[in-house]
Design a protein around this nucleic acid. Structure first.
Lengths: 189, 189
DNA sequence: CGTCGTCAGTACGGTGGCGTATGGAACGAC
DNA sequence: GTCGTTCCATACGCCACCGTACTGACGACG
């Protein structure tokens, strides 16, 4: 066959992207080299040119994910009202069809130390951000952090529930209301 | 070798137990026949007498899990104060070293339809129980259910956070306080 | 004391996924 | 055009895990 040479090459980042998609769909164990290659229209030969092994791809994917997730948090800084900032973080539950399952898949695969530390860093960033919001709302240092942890826990749980939403628990469309109520419960005053 | 024949046999339930342990440790993908056999002091030969295949073991394990999880909820009915009932559900987060990672591992593997429906049944039972508690606390039908869903989401999130607790997020020992604050936030009045 | 049912050991084939080896097509430099 | 570099294809070896076939130890029961 020998393929007519269309594009000059395939970047390593394309692989990382595809890897994240695969993880989002089927968990970390779904990160399989050959199917991924097929999806990109190439074979393993390409992969093992770009990466040393499967772990290297995982690392690249994690790095990409962490960068984006961090940017996502910082983008929320634009908004002024702290209440709105927090709400914005929660809206990802309903909104983003891509990031949610990813966060889920990764945070549950944190037995792997690489994944674990990446997840922890991302979580810590979200926590710090929210804690800041809560202090801006008048809470003390200690209370704000505890409240932030609660908010984060609630966020994670909603991610999980929302995945099964198509089946049962929160009747479709209600998720919006949950977000509002969640924020209302969490914010003082 | 031919092993001196110690116990007359190994029940299917023993296999299911071991299976749940394995899942709790390493996720569903850690449910591997031969290591499990080794752990029980036998070989595959035994396994394939008790079970048709690996899936059959998974089914048995799921059934066992679902039964226990259900009993756990109903055991909470004994307590009278609805607030205490809810708190009791949350205490599993800190208390049980076994059930928590199991719930986590299973609820994230719910791509598998078998696992998914089992998890959903268990969740629905917890929801119904909590909703009942909230109505007992004076909430309307609709509000109570929504509040129950929030409580359950918070529960799931705390499970997840608590797993990484040894590393960072909630400083050890604080988990207790979170439970109290969570219940305080959730219950009206 | 045979014989049958129960439970386990051993050995083997099949398959899926990882990683390697090697070759080759396209392209730029000169 | 020749040569080196980049990117990919093909083919293979390897290992882990599943499942099967066959054998064997032991007790129960007649």
């Amino acid at each position: 066959m020998a393929k007519p040479y269309l594009k000059p090459n395939l970047s390593a980042e394309s692989w990382a992207e595809a890897a994240l998609d695969a993880i989002a769909r089927g968990g970390v164990s779904a990160l399989v080299v050959e199917p991924l290659a097929k999806e990109l229209g190439v074979t393993k030969g390409s992969f093992y040119w770009h990466f040393a092994n499967r772990e290297a791809l995982l690392d690249a994917a994690l790095e990409l994910w962490e960068r984006r997730e961090t940017e996502a948090v910082f983008a929320k800084v634009r908004r002024e009202d702290p209440r709105l900032r927090i709400e914005a973080l929660f809206r990802e539950v309903t909104g983003n069809r891509r990031t949610s399952p990813l966060y889920l898949a990764l945070s549950t695969a944190s037995n792997d130390p690489r994944i674990g530390s990446a997840v922890r860093r991302v979580a810590e960033r979200r926590l710090a951000f929210m804690a800041e919001c809560f202090t801006a709302l008048g809470l003390g240092e200690e209370d704000a952090r505890r409240r932030a942890i609660m908010a984060h826990a609630l966020y994670l749980g909603m991610l999980q529930l929302q995945r099964d939403a198509r089946h049962a628990l929160p009747r479709a469309g209600e998720v919006q209301r949950f977000v509002e109520e969640a924020v209302a419960l969490l914010t003082p005053g």
